[in-house]
């Protein structure tokens, strides 16, 4: 048995988002620092074969914040699933520094916990983004948090994560790919009986579906580390189905956005288990994103080189 280590989300903010924030700040928010809804998305973890060494290089476990993240109709790319959160922009660097991050974080983790207690998986991926935009200098300070509950004791996986192909037939995986592409969802149940494969929402676990593999879209491409979203899903299951949890849950980490060629499925399978009783209270949570130095702290995007008109001599010189 190995302790499951989840790959944390890494934020990837598209420059378009900072442009949109600038406009929102000038035209709508002005001096308001009220929370605003935000939507990002994540995709099955990708890897790339390094042509020089032949090694498979996992790409980041990213959550993307696109240019339309602050609108109501965000365009989520194919095979990706949306995640919604709270966005809060501060007017001064001092307010940003002094923001009551603990209260913000606890508020959000409470929201996630309440949703779990109600039996819904809809809020498991809620996240928080706080920013300060230095509009004159095109500098954007930001800090994400992706609250995830800590399990005591920790979740373990039996015999490590294995290729999905060891558990499912090629036909079943092809069918899962088809079904999950037609209605992308962060989490789903899979039932394969004979040649018939079905998927359903996790909320149906325990009634219609029982003892079936649980599946979640995995933004992590590292073979032995499931992605961050599985953490809160497991918390949900432990809360609602404690006896199944102590016997082991069959988990499919879904990573195949393209149907497999030559039977090279990238998805992973494992049996996750935890002993002992879960608390009925809200467990502690973690999830502040670390900065470039690997420390808990904000990041900064400097867009001056690409946005500042005074720097655009460059474009004029071209051609």
């Amino acid at each position: 048995m190995t302790i499951i280590q989840f790959t944390p989300f890494s934020s990837l903010v598209e420059p378009n988002f900072w442009h949109a924030l600038t406009n929102l700040k000038i035209d709508v928010l002005r001096l308001s620092d009220e929370s605003v809804p935000i939507t990002g998305y994540y995709s099955p973890g990708r890897s790339i074969v390094d042509r020089e060494t032949g090694n498979e290089i996992p790409l980041g476990c990213n959550i993307n914040i696109p240019g339309d993240a602050l609108t109501n109709d965000i365009q989520v790319p194919a095979h990706s699933v949306p995640a919604s959160g709270l966005f809060k922009n501060y007017n001064t660097i001092e307010e940003f520094k002094e923001a009551d991050k603990t209260a913000l974080f606890n508020g959000l983790s409470q929201e996630i916990w309440d949703s779990i207690a109600k039996g819904s998986t809809a809020s498991l991926n809620r996240f928080l983004l706080i920013t300060f935009a230095d509009l004159k200098k095109y500098k954007y300070f930001y800090w994400f948090s992706f609250p995830a509950f800590v399990s005591k004791p920790a979740w373990e996986v039996e015999d490590d994560w294995k290729p999905a192909r060891t558990e499912f037939s090629d036909e079943t995986l092809t069918e899962i790919h088809k079904l999950s592409s037609s209605r992308p969802s962060p989490f789903f149940l899979v039932r394969a009986i004979g040649e018939k494969t079905e998927i359903a929402s996790v909320e149906e676990y325990g009634s219609f579906f029982k003892d079936v593999p649980l599946s979640s879209v995995h933004p992590s491409a590292t073979p032995s580390n499931p992605g961050w979203p599985l953490r809160n899903l497991l918390t949900y299951l432990r809360h609602h189905h404690p006896s199944d949890v102590s016997q082991g849950l069959r988990i499919l980490c879904w990573r195949d956005s393209e149907p497999s060629h030559n039977d090279q499925w990238k998805s992973r399978f494992g049996i996750a288990k935890v002993n002992g009783d879960a608390t009925k209270e809200k467990p502690a949570a973690v999830g502040w994103e670390k900065n470039v130095q690997g420390k808990l702290g904000p990041r900064m995007a400097d867009l001056a080189p690409m946005m500042d008109p005074t720097r655009h001599v460059l474009a004029d010189q071209a051609v």
Binding site: I4, N55, N225, V286, G294, L296
Partner: peptide
């Protein structure tokens, strides 16, 4: 956050 045993270390990216 510092010593959460269930958080994978961010680096190295390739295990």
């Amino acid at each position: 956050e510092g010593d959460d045993e269930a958080t994978a270390a961010p680096k190295p990216p390739a295990v």
